[in-house]
């Protein structure tokens, strides 16, 4: 009886204490405020989401903006979370990943005086975006083409591999560009392709990534390009273990296994995010869809102290030739 009384008392005390909480979400300081909502995998994936987060942190350093970030647990939380940020009068709200496309558009229409941006915005043919929404799209196939060239020139066995995350058109762009790049060097090259899964969780499964990579290495593949978020951490780990090579994606992942990461296809989500915050802060924000490819430095490949011994001058020369041809429009890179 006493025990129950104590528990009941504690419950009441907690409820009472909770009710007194005063810090509302609507408190508005003088500082510019940025809200960022992450895709599956979230902060710490060392890849796609982290690239966006880096852009946010750089902007925070340069402009002194305040920021908050979170990763939704369920689909409906995407829209509800975006609305919470909008109700709290954040100045710029950024959704990271195509899964936000529908929700962010709805919320942007309801809050016309707040700036919104969506990375990898999934635009419908002929769709008009509200003026306060920027859809950021990348031509991943162009950067993938270049690392495909590197892979084909580096392989000793003549067999290269690809590990994708979720089996969707977005990731098919990486695959198609990579294969086209490899065939540009060696037309008959063998490319082994595997996808981790058909759900967004396929971007957050390093164990599966490692398993798929080990399988490919076991069959004579010696370079694997991954486009799979944090799943790729397993691919890179497999390269280190077997003494083979991996190619990173989105962020520069060369450092993750020095000497075993041939290069990384960097998708400059960080630059795009930084740009959006800067534009909004300086009041030069423009809505609409932006496409970022090689010509805009939206994608590229990474060379640094961790992989410079792997990449020969001849490889660089060929890659740069391909880059110029793509930018000039002489090479058309397939997307599927």
């Amino acid at each position: 009886m006493i025990r129950r009384a104590i528990i009941a008392f504690m419950l009441l005390a907690l409820l009472a204490a909770s009710g007194c909480g005063s810090d509302g979400p609507a408190e508005q300081g003088d500082r510019y405020r940025v809200g960022m909502v992450f895709d599956v995998g979230g902060k710490g994936d060392k890849s796609f989401n982290d690239s966006a987060y880096r852009g946010l942190l750089n902007a925070a350093d340069d402009f002194g903006v305040e920021h908050t970030e979170f990763e939704p647990g369920q689909d409906a939380d995407r829209e509800i979370g975006l609305r919470k940020l909008a109700q709290a009068r954040y100045d710029v709200i950024i959704g990271v990943g195509f899964l936000f496309s529908d929700s962010i558009k709805k919320v942007a229409i309801d809050y016309p005086d707040i700036h919104f941006a969506c990375v990898d915005y999934d635009v419908r043919p002929g769709e008009e975006l509200p003026r306060n929404l920027a859809g950021l799209r990348f031509r991943e196939e162009e950067g993938s083409f270049l690392v495909g060239v590197l892979a084909a020139m580096h392989t000793k066995t003549g067999r290269i591999g690809f590990v994708g995350g979720m089996d969707i058109p977005l990731i098919h762009k990486f695959e198609a560009g990579y294969i086209a790049g490899a065939r540009y060097v060696t037309p008959g090259i063998s490319v082994t392709v595997a996808y981790t899964g058909t759900t967004p969780l396929a971007f957050a499964d390093p164990a599966k990534g490692k398993e798929l990579a080990l399988l490919q290495y076991g069959r004579g593949v010696d370079v694997i390009y991954h486009a799979s978020g944090s799943t790729g951490n397993g691919v890179i780990e497999a390269a280190r273990e077997t003494g083979k090579f991996a190619i990173g994606v989105d962020s520069n992942q060369n450092y993750m296994a020095p000497g075993h990461v041939l290069s990384s296809m960097v998708k400059r989500v960080d630059n795009a995010v930084y740009r959006i915050i800067k534009d909004s802060y300086e009041d030069t924000f423009v809505g609409g869809v932006t496409e970022l490819g090689l010509a805009e430095d939206g994608v590229g490949y990474a060379i640094d102290q961790h992989n410079e011994i792997l990449v020969t001058d001849e490889m660089i020369k060929t890659v740069e030739k391909a880059r110029s041809a793509i930018v000039a429009g002489d090479i058309e890179v397939p997307t599927d």
């Binding site: 528990i7 009941a8 504690m10 419950l11 907690l14 409820l15 204490a17 909770s18 009710g19 007194c20 909480g21 005063s22 810090d23």
Partner: peptide, 26 residues
């Protein structure tokens, strides 16, 4: 009620104030 107390300890263990976190939750 008991679970909220234990949850509060977890919040405290990572250095946040349980009352503040619960206040926001409520």
């Amino acid at each position: 009620a008991v679970s909220f107390l234990v949850g509060g300890l977890v919040v405290m263990a990572i250095g946040e104030s349980p009352l503040r976190v619960y206040a926001i939750l409520v």
